[in-house]
C-alpha cells in the first residue's frame, strides 16, 4: 500500500463520519414525545373533541393554521366552519390556546422531538402559562 498513513487516516475519518449518528446517540436517553391534554379547559369538556377529528389535526394542523393566517391577514375572514358545521374564530391565541394552554407539554413535545421550528412566535404572544412563568 502506498501513502498508507494519509489514506488510512482519511478512511478512519470517513467511517467515523458515516457512523456519527451511532456514536452521537450513545448514552442519551430516548424520550418519546407525549403530547398532554391535561389542561383545565380540556378537563372540563364532556366530549373531548378538537375543531376537527384527531387524525385530521395531527396530519393537517400546520396547513390549517397557515390557511387561517392567510384568511385573516389577507382576506379579512375570521370565521372557520368545521366539517361538523360548528363555527370557530380563526385565531391561534383565542381558539387554539383556549384549550391547549400548555405549549410545552403539547406543541413542543413533537416539535422538539423532530426539530420542527414553527415561526408562530415571530408574531404571536405565547400562551398565558408561559407569560405567567416569566418566559
Amino acid at each position: 500500500m502506498y501513502d498508507s498513513g494519509k489514506i488510512i487516516t482519511g478512511l478512519v475519518l470517513f467511517v467515523g463520519l458515516v457512523t456519527l449518528p451511532f456514536w452521537y446517540s450513545i448514552g442519551k436517553a430516548q424520550v418519546k414525545p407525549d403530547p398532554s391534554l391535561n389542561t383545565p379547559v380540556i378537563n372540563q369538556m364532556k366530549v373531548k373533541h378538537c375543531i376537527e377529528s384527531k387524525q385530521f389535526m395531527i396530519d393537517n394542523h400546520m396547513e390549517l393554521l397557515n390557511d387561517w393566517r392567510n384568511a385573516v391577514v389577507r382576506d379579512n375572514k375570521t370565521l372557520y366552519v368545521s366539517t361538523t358545521g360548528q363555527s370557530f374564530t380563526m385565531s391561534l391565541e383565542v381558539t387554539c390556546f383556549h384549550c391547549h394552554s400548555n405549549e410545552k407539554q403539547f406543541c413542543n413535545q413533537c416539535h422538539s422531538y423532530v426539530n420542527i421550528q414553527p415561526y408562530c412566535w415571530e408574531c404571536h404572544v405565547k400562551p398565558a402559562e408561559e407569560i405567567a412563568n416569566g418566559h
Binding site: 502506498y2 478512511l11 470517513f14 458515516v18 457512523t19
Partner: peptide, 21 residues
C-alpha cells in the same frame, strides 16, 4: 445497506491504495 456501504467503500479504497503511484 450500511454494512455493505462501509465494507465496500473500505475495500475499494484499499484496493486503489495498493496500486503503484
Amino acid at each position: 445497506a450500511v454494512i455493505i456501504f462501509i465494507l465496500g467503500f473500505v475495500y475499494r479504497i484499499i484496493k486503489w491504495a495498493r496500486s503503484p503511484v
